[in-house]
Nucleic acid binder design. Structure first.
Lengths: 201, 201
DNA sequence: CTAGCCATGTAATCCGTTACATGATTGG
DNA sequence: CCAATCATGTAACGGATTACATGGCTAG
């Protein structure tokens, strides 16, 4: 009962922000950019989350904020992690995420695929295959940019792991698409044999 | 501008319900059960969604509802799809889902992995590996149960495709886990060499 | 008789996105 | 001067989960 405070589920965005503070990002704006550019393949954040969280973290003593307002500089709030904030982050990092219920719209559509022409299903799969290909190319470009960078960041090996994850999953999906397209073609042949054979309408 | 009605984004739960109506499921309760048992590997639904949606669909003429209330039977509402409902479903089925921004907590943690002992990261990965194994076994059991069933359902080939998807992705993840564990071990060796070599504290 | 399943429903709450409002600074 | 970028923030909305309330039927 009294563990409710430690056990209470906090929004994951909170820890994304703490993590970015821990890598020295100072402004909400910079964090949003960082998510878009570097974490985009497995995470997203909106200003509507970031700014309120930043304010909260300061209230809770997990971060500090000093306003930069000297002449000839943009108005900006400079945040930094406190030791307590670091502890909070690490405590979260070591907990295995509980598996979250997935919602894969593509598979939901495919489950009901019998209700539409086979060709429609084939289109769904081809589109998904294209998405996979684009993602794989995108991940590859991020990866090579990261490897070419001269002074290597201490986080680099971990970043590479996340990139490998994306590639592995996307490639598996692409293979699945190919197999599935073959199966759909078989179904199509089956339809031509059993129902009308060549009749329009 | 005037396409707003057809284009307007509707909650996906709505179509999950329409789909289940199309396969003859009659009550909200049965739908919840079906999601849990048969779609659990890629979808989830809660009563808090299902019942309000069912009411709405009737209001919109996409479903009908007749209350079964003869003596000696449980009180239940029997829903069925109308032709308009079938059209709505099919119109949705043929549209490729736009890629939804993922939020993979495991990868978020791994990105910040440098902030905790390597052993903690290894534990994260091992746990995930276990999850993959459990899922693969679970999918296999569903699949064999489905294949063994005598009278084959017209939707069966599509169900098998969704199962293959789950297996393909989970197996790819498992392979990634193995590779990642190796890399983490290398990192661990590196630490031992550069920093204190065997010193406690 | 009672535990467990069938069955329906709602209110509170949460997480998160979207859209908007505002404005300073810098580079071309 | 103007467009792009840096920068902060909030209000409204939406989708979804959680927790709760209720009750009848059935099998052991």
């Amino acid at each position: 009962m009294q563990a409710s405070d430690r056990t209470r589920k906090r929004p994951r965005s909170r820890y994304a922000v703490l993590g970015m503070l821990s890598m020295g990002l100072e402004t909400g704006y910079a964090m949003k950019k960082h998510v878009e550019v570097h974490l985009g393949h497995f995470w997203n954040e909106s200003y509507g989350q970031i700014y309120p969280i930043l304010r909260q973290l300061v209230e809770e003593g997990l971060a500090t904020c000093q306003v930069e307002q000297q002449a000839g500089a943009r108005r900006r709030k400079c945040y930094a992690l406190t030791p307590a904030g670091g502890n909070e982050l690490r405590a979260w990092l070591v907990q295995s995420p509980e598996p979250q219920p997935p919602r894969l719209e593509l598979l939901l559509k495919l489950t009901f695929g019998e209700r539409v022409p086979v060709e429609a299903c084939e289109q769904l799969i081809r589109d998904h295959r294209e998405t996979c290909n684009r993602d794989i190319a995108h991940l590859a470009s991020i990866e090579s940019a990261l490897r070419d960078k001269p002074g290597r960041h201490p986080d680099q090996p971990y970043w590479l792991m996340t990139l490998r994850y994306g590639r592995a999953v996307r490639e598996a999906e692409r293979t699945w698409c190919d197999e599935t397209l073959e199966q759909l073609q078989e179904i199509r042949s089956g339809h031509q044999l059993t129902s009308e054979s060549g009749m329009g309408r």
